[in-house]
Structure formats: structure tokens, C-alpha cells
Design a protein around this nucleic acid. Structure first.
Length: 526
RNA sequence: GCGUCCUUAGCUCAGUUGGAUAGAGCAAUGCCCUUCUAAGGCAUCGGUCAGAGGUUCGAAUCCUCUAGGGCGUACCA
């Protein structure tokens, strides 16, 4: 809708015109402050320019009025245009707000280590990534959702050790000496029990079998993670394991060329050329690769697969890592601009108003699945999706678990359910509703219709700016308008019943489409 | 120290590539169910947009400095 208006104005002025939604709807549907910027160049007052521009519009069918007010030019869309657009949207349903953008994108997110179930902090990245995925796909991009599995390195060794100690301590009743770092939790007890049943006591004692147990356990844990994600409607297309990549090592190192060098028996990468504080070790003196090594071959593999764009969603604690990986991408001969890293800032937790620190050792980790069980996937997703992801944010655990009207998802769901109830109660058939014309609407009804038809722009803006929170914000605003309209206007028995129902169906379509892009199903009754 | 993200109402957060009177939710106070779902609506209260300069027709938004906070600054992942 906005695109169409913008295109029309571009033809007229021969340049891009800034269009915005006036805060006060009595000013019209769209407005532009273009006269202000032209005033200098034309050496005339903005009011006069605006006046002249407004008067230059003839009888375009798109607008019913073009007026100048205090230097702004305000456009009012015609009823015929709005009705035509609304009818199109209702007839096409699923396609509303979709587009035919071209391009392939590899989107990597979550990628939590397979050493334990997801905790609540992981939920933010998962929700953010999945929302971007849904938005992008709706717009026509071909996107692969990928999970990078760190199934090599120290944490896997640690997993094996932790598993054996847990089994020996809890199941065999032995006194064991705990190392400084180890994993613990209910899932580990369950796994230890399974080890005992499947492999016997020896497997828990034999240190040479730690690696084998660790690899067995990480598959089990990954299955747990996949299950946790499934519960919040997050699904991945591909999983790439770090361990599987090392066969490529020599070839990738050769490809890095001058980007890497040897010093003191270690291999370094020239990451300082790309803004890193200093060069980083890639292979230690004893030949073991560092974490960065895995990421280098992984990103090489990503780029060899030939996507047009790459998006990584990382936790903010990885931000120092961006320069290193971009350096590697560049040394490998690819354009580092193609790699876009979105940081999702930390989620800090409060309990009873006090900072609450999760600790694996103290067993105070709050698992995502527990929260999902308490408040449900919809509330969790809506809450996390509502927050701009580049600010650190605080959640009170008790508040998160509360399920009442303070939770905005109910506000939106309720709005959708109210419409469905009206439609099912009305005697008027769907064909008659669809056949009615949206003319002569009250200002409130017009405002509601216009708001509902804005969804496509919101989707595009939310995706292209990577600001997923714009969609839930929009849905809340639309719900507020709907609730007010519902309260003020009696629909059933109204002389314009068919017309109003058509309008409400458009609103319902925006709710349904918007919610599904958030991975939430719209409810028909509550 | 350096890098980076941030600071908006009592709390949690929005604020559209710089635009018209800075907005929601929660909390607080008071109204509205014999009317299509009160999980709702209406009203009141609440702001030096951290502070100081600058850029310009115009700044919460852009630039500089200051103060405060998060994260990073590993041959951990």
C-alpha cells in the first residue's frame, strides 16, 4: 500500500519521497515533510511549496484528498482504493503481506553447546532467529535455518567426565573428587542411569571410555534440545557438527594463504588486520585446534555452499568474535560484508526484585522447558519477540511465570477471538460480507481498516531492519484499536453489519498472519 | 586502559532512513457489565528523553565530551 503511494510520488517528483504515518489520523493516511527540504533549494517558504504541490494533484484514483497543513502535505487514500486492497487481501489470505523477494540466506542461530538442555537465556536468540526466519520466508527469501553443534573440544571431554562422576557418585555411591568445572543437573543423572543400564558399571569407571560416553551423550542431549525447540515452534533445516569439519582442515588452511602464520610452534590468524586487538591462536603448540579453528572451517563450508547472504545470531558475549571470523572469511577469499552478525543481548534475571544468577554448579539453572510448561510457548514467544534484541533486558522470573492480563499475548489473542465470535454469530453469509463495499466508514472504522492494511509494510520493515519487535508492537496497537472499536460499535444488528464484518475480517487476517509469523496460532475463542 | 552495546514515566519497554502535542503495558486512583466475550473500555496521576555543548528551519534520534551500567578484551566454548 505504502509502496504504491511511494511509487506514485516517485514518478511525480522524480525522487524518493519520505512517507510517514501522521500521529493524528485527522491529517490523513500518509504525510510527507518534503516541502521543508525543498524550501532551501527553491528559496520559498515550506508552506507555499506545500500548497503548490498539494494543488498540483488532480483526480488520481488513489487519493481522495491531498492537503497542505503547516508545511506538511497530507494524503488521504480513497475509499475505492482501500476497498479494492482489502478485498484482494481477503481473497488471497495466506499471501497477504507476502512478497517475491529473491535471494538465498543461511541463517544460523541458537547453536547452544550440546552439553545440557536449553536455559531461559537461550530462548531469546531462538525466538528472535525463528521470527526473522518466518518473516524472511514470507517475503520470499529462501532461507536455511542452521544449528552449529560444538561437538568437539574441551566441553565434550568435560561432559564425559561429568557423566562418569555423576554415575559413580549418585548411582554407585562412591566418594568422588569433583573437578573445578563440571556439568550437573537432572538430565545428567538420567543419562548416567541409562549408561549403567546399557553399558554396565565398567563404563562409568573406565576413563578410556569417557570420550565414547561423551559422544553418545551429546546426541541424546541434542535430541533434548531439539525437543525443547519444537515445543516453542522452532525447527532447524540443518545441523552441522564441528567434529565433522576437521577433515577439511589442511585444505582450508591452504586456502587461508597469508592469513595465517606459524610462530613458536603455534598457528596464528592475522585478525588484527581486521580490528581485533591482537592475532589469535588457531592451533595450539600440541596440535589441538582452538574454538576459532572450528569456526573458520565452518564459515568456509558455509561460503562454499554458495548463499547470497549469511546471518548469524550470537549472544552478545561473542561480540569480540566478529572481527576474527570476518577476518577469516576475508582471508578465505570471500566478502566479509556478506556475513551479518546480529547480537542478541543478554537476558538478566531477577527474582523477587533481586538479581538472580544462574549457575550450573549450584543447580540454579532455569530451563527453558520449565518456563514453557508454566506460561506456554505463545506467551514466551510473544514476550521475547516484543523486546528489541540489542538492549540488555531484565526479567523477573515470577513475572514471567504469571499468566494474567499483564501478559500482552492475551490482549492480542482476545481481539482475534472477539472477531471470530462476531462472524460466527452473524446471520450474514461470507459471500454477502465479501461482496459489500467499504464506503462511508466512520473515522474510527477507517482508522481500523487502514491500520490492518499496514501489516505488509510492518513485515517488510521488521525483516529488513532486523527489528523483529516491530511486529508484536504493531499487533498490540492493532488490538487496542479493535478493542476500542468493539466497545464503541455494536456490530450484530447494525445497518452496516456486512460492511463492518468485512472490515473486521481484514483485521482478523492481519492478526492471524502476524501471529503465525511469530510462531503463534491465533485462537478463535478464549 | 581499549573495544562494543546501552541510559526515555515509580517498574518493564516502544518511539518509523531527523518532523506536527514524546507513547504503551504494569503499578496507583476513580468510573463503565439487564447491550455481540469485563482476558475489555474510559478517565486521572506520572517526563529536564543521563548531563553539557554542537550540527539546522526542526534533535529522544546525527556529532563531540562527561557521568553511570552491561558485555568482551583466553592457547574456554
Amino acid at each position: 500500500m505504502k509502496q504504491r503511494v511511494a511509487a506514485l510520488l516517485r514518478d511525480k517528483f522524480n525522487c524518493d519521497v519520505i512517507l510517514e504515518k501522521p500521529k493524528d489520523r485527522s491529517f490523513g493516511h500518509f504525510s510527507t515533510p518534503i516541502a521543508f527540504s525543498l524550501s532551501k533549494e527553491l528559496r520559498k517558504s515550506p508552506m507555499i511549496i506545500a500548497e503548490e504541490i498539494a494543488n498540483s494533484f488532480g483526480d488520481e484514483s488513489v487519493f481522495s484528498a491531498v492537503e497542505s497543513v503547516k508545511g506538511y502535505i497530507n494524503f488521504r487514500l480513497s475509499e475505492a482504493f482501500l476497498d479494492e486492497y482489502a478485498t484482494w487481501a481477503l481473497r488471497h489470505g495466506d499471501q497477504f503481506g507476502s512478497d517475491d523477494k529473491k535471494g538465498t540466506i543461511l541463517l544460523e542461530f541458537v547453536s547452544a553447546n550440546p552439553t545440557g538442555p536449553l536455559h531461559i537465556g537461550h530462548a531469546r536468540g531462538a525466538v528472535y532467529g525463528d521470527t526473522l526466519l518466518r518473516l524472511g520466508r514470507h517475503l520470499g527469501y529462501e532461507i536455511t535455518a542452521e544449528y552449529y553443534v560444538n561437538d568437539a573440544g574441551n566441553q565434550i571431554d568435560l561432559l564425559g567426565v561429568s557423566l562418569q562422576l555423576e554415575g559413580r557418585s549418585a548411582l554407585l555411591g562412591e566418594e568422588v573428587e569433583w573437578p573445578e568445572k563440571y556439568y550437573r543437573g537432572e538430565y545428567l543423572s538420567d543419562l548416567a542411569r541409562e549408561v549403567l543400564e546399557q553399558f554396565g558399571e565398567e563404563a562409568l569407571r573406565d576413563e578410556s571410555r569417557q570420550k565414547e560416553l561423551a559422544l553418545w551423550a551429546k546426541d541424546k542431549i541434542l535430541a533434548l534440545i531439539v525437543n525443547d525447540l519444537k515445543a516453542i515452534n522452532v525447527h532447524f533445516d540443518t545441523f552441522v557438527g564441528e567434529a565433522s569439519l576437521y577433515g577439511e582442515w589442511d585444505r582450508v588452511m591452504a586456502k587461508m594463504g597469508q592469513g595465517v602464520y606459524q610462530n613458536e610452534g603455534k598457528t596464528f590468524i592475522h585478525s588484527s588486520d581486521f580490528g581485533d586487538d591482537h592475532d589469535r591462536v588457531v592451533v595450539r603448540e600440541d596440535g589441538r585446534p582452538t574454538y576459532l579453528a572450528g569456526d573458520i572451517i565452518y564459515h568456509n563450508q558455509k561460503f562454499e555452499r554458495g548463499y547470497e547472504d549469511y546471518i548469524n545470531i550470537w549472544g552478545a558475549d561473542h561480540h569480540g568474535y566478529i572481527a576474527r571470523v570476518k577476518a577469516a572469511v576475508s582471508f578465505l577469499g570471500y566478502n566479509p560484508e556478506k556475513l551479518e552478525v546480529q547480537l542478541s543481548q543478554m537476558v538478566s534475571l531477577l527474582k523477587d526484585g533481586e538479581p538472580f544468577k544462574m549457575s550450573k554448579r549450584a543447580g540454579t539453572v532455569i530451563q527453558m522447558s520449565d518456563v514453557v510448561e508454566e506460561i506456554g510457548s505463545d506467551a514466551l514467544r510473544f514476550m521475547f519477540a516484543s523486546k528489541k534484541c540489542d538492549t540488555a533486558l531484565e526479567f523477573d522470573i515470577e513475572e514471567l511465570k504469571r499468566q494474567d492480563s499483564s501478559n500482552p499475548i492475551y490482549y492480542v489473542q482476545y481481539a482475534h477471538a472477539r472477531i471470530q465470535t462476531l462472524v460466527s454469530k452473524s446471520e450474514i453469509g461470507l459471500e454477502e460480507i465479501m461482496g459489500s463495499y467499504l464506503i462511508g466508514l466512520s473515522p474510527d472504522a477507517d482508522g481500523l481498516l487502514f491500520e490492518a492494511l499496514l501489516l505488509p509494510e510492518i513485515i517488510e520493515d521488521a525483516f529488513e531492519s532486523r527489528q523483529a519487535q516491530k511486529l508484536p508492537d504493531y499487533l498490540k496497537a492493532l488490538a487496542a484499536k479493535l478493542h476500542k472499536f468493539y466497545y464503541d460499535t455494536r456490530i450484530i444488528g447494525n445497518e452496516d453489519e456486512a460492511k463492518l464484518l468485512k472490515l473486521l475480517l481484514v483485521v482478523a487476517l492481519s492478526f492471524k498472519t502476524g501471529l503465525s509469523l511469530l510462531g503463534i496460532e491465533a485462537k478463535d475463542r478464549m
